[in-house]
């Protein structure tokens, strides 16, 4: 791990992706359906990184953008929504037909379990065995026999289904807020976000805003990734657009719909990628382009109104061993008296 407290982890998306994402990595998208780390995904595409095995719990725009760009050779996932329903299409389907993409299919739980095993340091984990009746178990992709293995439970003697742990090289994930050290706070639909980050070897966090460390200290229940695991912190307002971030902005249905329509065909997808991914050098340029094309009023309408969580009281009766009269709370004496007593008893050494 390259992370350390003295290192400055705050950097641009360009620097973070350049430093911590390598060709042929196992790459995992931390977010699940909402708050997608779109800008980090786009930056990977702009830097033309490639050869990834991509882990995605459930993808739509994020997975298809990476596949459209030709970054992904192998996909481990449970769900990728097709653009435009039956009449439509999608990057994943096009790539599978062309034979340039292999997909290992799991169920939501069984995929997530691989991350949980990885995050806790186990080599495998027991999973939900219902799929043994189905093709999810019977048909194997590039993982072959290692997709699922059956062992006997040493306690009950029953067959149990297992999956291997996953420990991807790098996780990209978007959260609401983080401090400069990388303590990352996320709330809302928890999905498998924490497990995806914590099972990975390197973690790049993008956030809507960087906050003071004191904010984190007073709300540790919101922290899903501790700073010592994080390699890079990137502040990117609107970093998940067109997906949504709870407390910041809603899903941009109009723009998302536009992506879905474009993505249904290869030409449409290419034009969309040219305009919104390759055509904008960073998120600021993207938002400027959006505002110029559709008016900034469109984004204003998506901004969240406040509905604050009730504060949890992390306070206690006192935070010093010494009371207001300078007496120690248990022994009832001052520091001066304590030192005198210890001297008298011959307890102090030179």
């Amino acid at each position: 791990m390259e992370s350390s407290a003295i290192e400055n982890k705050v950097m641009s998306a360009r620097e973070a992706i350049n430093r911590f994402v390598n060709d042929n990595d196992e790459l995992i998208i931390g977010n699940y359906t909402v708050g997608t780390c779109c800008e980090l995904v786009y930056e990977i595409v702009r830097q033309k990184k490639k050869g990834f095995t991509l882990y995605s719990q459930s993808g739509i725009l994020d997975v298809d953008v990476l596949v459209n760009a030709g970054c992904i050779d192998r996909l481990v996932s449970t769900y990728v929504l097709r653009s435009g329903g039956k009449k439509g299409g999608g990057a994943v389907e096009r790539a599978m037909r062309a034979g340039t993409l292999e997909w290992e299919d799991y169920t939501n739980f069984n995929y997530n379990a691989r991350l949980v095993a990885g995050m806790h340091g186990f080599s495998f984990i027991q999973v939900l065995e219902g799929v043994m009746a189905t093709d999810l178990f019977k048909k194997r992709g590039f993982m072959g026999e290692d997709k699922y293995r059956v062992i006997q439970c040493p306690y009950t003697g029953k067959d149990i289904l297992t999956v291997p742990a996953a420990n991807p090289d790098v996780c990209i994930v978007h959260v609401q807020r983080a401090d400069r050290d990388g303590n990352a706070q996320y709330w809302g639909a928890m999905g498998s976000v924490a497990a995806a980050a914590l099972c990975s070897k390197r973690i790049i966090v993008s956030c809507e805003e960087i906050v003071e460390h004191d904010v984190i200290k007073s709300s540790p229940h919101l922290t899903i990734i501790p700073s010592y695991r994080v390699n890079a912190v990137v502040e990117i307002p609107w970093g998940a657009h067109p997906t949504e971030v709870l407390g910041y902005y809603n899903l941009d249905r109009f723009f998302y719909g536009m992506f879905m329509m474009s993505n249904a065909t290869e030409e449409g997808a290419r034009a969309w990628m040219d305009e919104w991914v390759y055509g904008c050098k960073d998120r600021e340029a993207y938002i400027d382009h959006y505002a110029q094309k559709f008016g900034s009023g469109m984004l204003d309408k998506l901004k969240a109104r406040a509905f604050f969580s009730a504060p949890a009281n992390y306070g206690s009766a006192f935070i010093s061993s010494w009371d207001e009269n300078g007496r120690e709370r248990t022994m009832g004496i001052t520091l001066e008296t304590l030192e005198k007593t210890m001297e008298e008893r011959g307890m102090l050494c030179e």
Binding site: T78, R82, M96, T107
Partner: peptide, 21 residues
């Protein structure tokens, strides 16, 4: 065909787990 599909539908998601239990 699963490996070279005419239509690649979304996948299981949580479906196989939920209908199991």
């Amino acid at each position: 065909d699963y490996y070279k599909p005419d239509l690649r539908l979304p996948g299981s998601g949580g479906a196989a787990d939920f209908i199991s239990y």
